[in-house]
Amino acid sequence: MQSISFQSELFQISYRSEKVRLLPKEYELFQLLYQHPARIFSRQALLDLLWPMADPVDRTVDDHIYRLRKKLVPLADVVKIRTVRGQGYVLDQLSQLQTNPLSDDRELAEDMGKLFRKYHLYGQGDALRLMADNQAVFGVELDASSQLYLYFMNGEFERLLHFDHTDFWDKCYYLLHLHYYTCEDAEKSLFYFTKALNCEHLPLQHKLEISLLNRLTLLILTKQLDEAAVLLKISKQEILDGEMEGFVLILYLMELGLAFLQRNDAWIEAALVMIESELIKRPFSREKALFSIMQGLYQLYKGNSVNVKETIAEGFAQFRKAKYVPGIFQSLKIIIAFLEEFEDYPDLHTYYFKELERYREMYQLVELGPYISCELEKHL
């Protein structure tokens, strides 16, 4: 079934062309039920989760369920809030049997696949969501790997973990990243990424990204600079010779990070010029956001603290605007790691560490962390 999309700033949910505006608590209630398919919530559980600091009356949950059901009438063929006698409430997600006559058009499917990859390359999260939420309308059906990527991009991590149409190895790449976002021990994350490379069941594209970029990032962040320098040279040759367009800017940004840690001013200046030049040719949203953050860190490196917080915050805001949730976590981990290197800014480090904790709570990574670790330990 296609996903319902959430617009938190409007307290609105959308499915195909239908849009439903909700009150804030109705929105939180629906989102909670939707993110936990088939889970029955008792009235007390809902009160504890949604009204933890209030003293609601006995009818609070029932009244909100009643109003929410009325507003969900336009989506009656998609979702239904069901009362389980003596237990509570559960959200049923109903299958859709309607088909589009274009759904068997192979040329359209190929064209939409190209469009999906282009939106992905340029970090156009809103466009990807629109495609995902309107598959039946457009006459296309995203494959399982694309659906996994969308769950990852949207921050729907619980849905990703329990997506039934794939096995562990299809999800492994995303689990590795989620572990990195959750765990304070970057060495442990590097260990898992490295072990995954030796597993023959890992999809080749994921293995390529881990070998050329992900391990490089973690080697830099764990200060294994000599090994990182060797891998950078290997990665640069393979990426540039192979004309891997989507990897080039990330490679140069990691090179800039390595130059920071090696305190090589000439290398830093050259990397900055190279990245600015590449962004003109490849104006990818996520890379532009990360570059803004790195420019702020560069000012710290130079000992210039004026407007640094604003420069870093601008890049961080660009990730939020692009609606690319993994970018939020990746940028926070990078910011925190480099602020630890530049020890003169403890207040800034504390601020971004609290932001990381807040986003972990927001996207349920605190409660999902043990499951993620267990899956990686079991399979790797």
Rank of each mutant, 00 (worst) to 15 (best):
L94M: 08
A259T: 02
I40F: 07
K288V: 12
D265Y: 12
A132R: 08
L332C: 03
L23M: 12
I239C: 07
Q124S: 10
R69S: 07
D104P: 01
N214S: 13
Q96H: 12
E269R: 08
I328S: 08
L175M: 11
S189Q: 03
I280L: 14
G123N: 02
L29G: 00
D63V: 01
V57C: 14
I336S: 08
E200F: 06
K281S: 12
F342T: 02
W169K: 03
A127W: 11
I336W: 04
V20P: 01
R320E: 15
L356P: 00
D143E: 10
L231E: 09
L23R: 14
I268L: 06
D92M: 10
V61Y: 00
Q205E: 15
R82S: 15
I280P: 00
I13G: 05
N100G: 04
E200V: 05
Q98G: 06
R117M: 13
D167A: 10
L128S: 03
P101R: 14
Y149Q: 05
Y89W: 09
M254V: 04
F319G: 10
K236C: 07
L202Q: 05
V230W: 06
L251D: 02
C374Q: 15
Y151C: 01
F353C: 13
M1S: 09
R282Q: 15
D58W: 08
L68D: 03
P24A: 07
Q364F: 12
V20N: 06
L72P: 00
E357H: 10
L368F: 02
Q224M: 02
Q7K: 12
N154R: 14
L219P: 00
E141Y: 05
L376R: 02
L231A: 08
Y371C: 11
R67D: 10
Y122P: 00
E107I: 11
H177T: 04
G155A: 10
S5T: 11
D185T: 02
D62I: 11
L160K: 05
E343G: 09
G242N: 05
T311N: 12
F342P: 00
V308N: 02
A259W: 08
L256C: 01
A317S: 13
L68P: 00
D133R: 13
E238R: 11
L32G: 01
P52V: 01
G242K: 05
Q330E: 15
V140H: 02
K288E: 15
G123P: 00
S95V: 12
E187M: 12
T60Q: 05
D58A: 15
F116N: 05
L115V: 09
E107D: 13
E355F: 03
G296A: 06
A38C: 07
L258Q: 02
Q262F: 04
F138M: 10
L216W: 10
